[in-house]
């Protein structure tokens, strides 16, 4: 399990500018996410939601501006940081020629996670029995997503960066995912969810930031009724 949240912010971005060639991915984004908070990142297609998450994960280098994630520099201290964060992106990062169990074992070991947590994660995501021994290349998109989420569950990083996490999941898996996010938030993990499905994610978060044109243009508290 993740340690209790530190008092310092989990993520701080100050005037963050990131480019892909000459195309601006982030154009002066400012955001602070306190440790232990669950945040929805909303915005239209191409607004910069995915880029924001990839910058936080250190996959995209800033051209200018400042960034600190879990108190670390995502570029200079990337190796240390990446062991403490988990990014669930559009891709599942799985090898088609390995079985589900082999993919899980490799991913968790590679990230320095505890392999003893894998069986419980598989159980949770229904990846037991024959499915565990099935080649990942034979799985549906939704099943691949379950495997990626099982890796996340087994690793249990301190900062979860989830990009459209509900995409491709069936109703049962969506309920499982919502339960997982709620459990992670309750355990002190910082969760950042980029999603178009605002109505699905809002019950799981306490704050929402709106991204447009590579900038954070609005922030709001999310009130929960009842």
């Amino acid at each position: 399990m993740a340690p209790p949240p530190s008092p310092s912010p989990a993520v701080v971005l100050v005037d963050a500018v990131a480019l892909s060639g000459r195309f601006p991915l982030l154009a002066g984004a400012n955001v602070t996410i306190p440790a232990g908070q669950s945040v929805l990142v909303e915005g239209a297609n191409g607004a910069g939601k995915t880029s924001l998450l990839r910058v936080m994960a250190g996959l995209i280098r800033l051209e200018s501006g400042g960034i600190s994630v879990l108190g670390l520099d995502p570029v200079a201290e990337r190796r240390l940081l990446r062991r403490r964060i988990g990014l669930l992106g559009h891709a599942s990062h799985l090898y088609d020629d390995l079985t589900v169990a082999e993919n899980l074992r490799f991913a968790v070991r590679a990230a320095g996670g505890d392999v003893a947590r894998i069986p419980a994660a598989c159980e949770r995501w229904g990846l037991v029995g024959r499915l565990g021994k099935t080649g990942t290349g034979k799985l549906s998109a939704g099943q691949r997503r379950r495997v990626a989420l099982a890796i996340h569950t087994a690793r249990w990083p301190e900062l979860w960066l989830l990009d459209e996490p509900h995409a491709g999941l069936d109703a049962e898996a969506r309920v499982l995912l919502d339960g997982l996010i709620a459990e992670a938030a309750a355990s002190g993990v910082t969760v950042v969810v980029a999603s178009h499905e605002v109505e699905l994610v809002e019950p799981l978060v306490t704050r929402a930031v709106t991204v447009a044109g590579g900038r954070v243009v609005a922030e709001r508290e999310v009130a929960h009724v009842g």
Partner: peptide
């Protein structure tokens, strides 16, 4: 090519491997 499919290359980077 093994690392080119399904974002496996990013997976390796994100794992924090040496």
């Amino acid at each position: 090519s093994v690392e080119a499919s399904d974002g496996a290359q990013d997976g390796l980077r994100l794992a924090g491997l040496d």
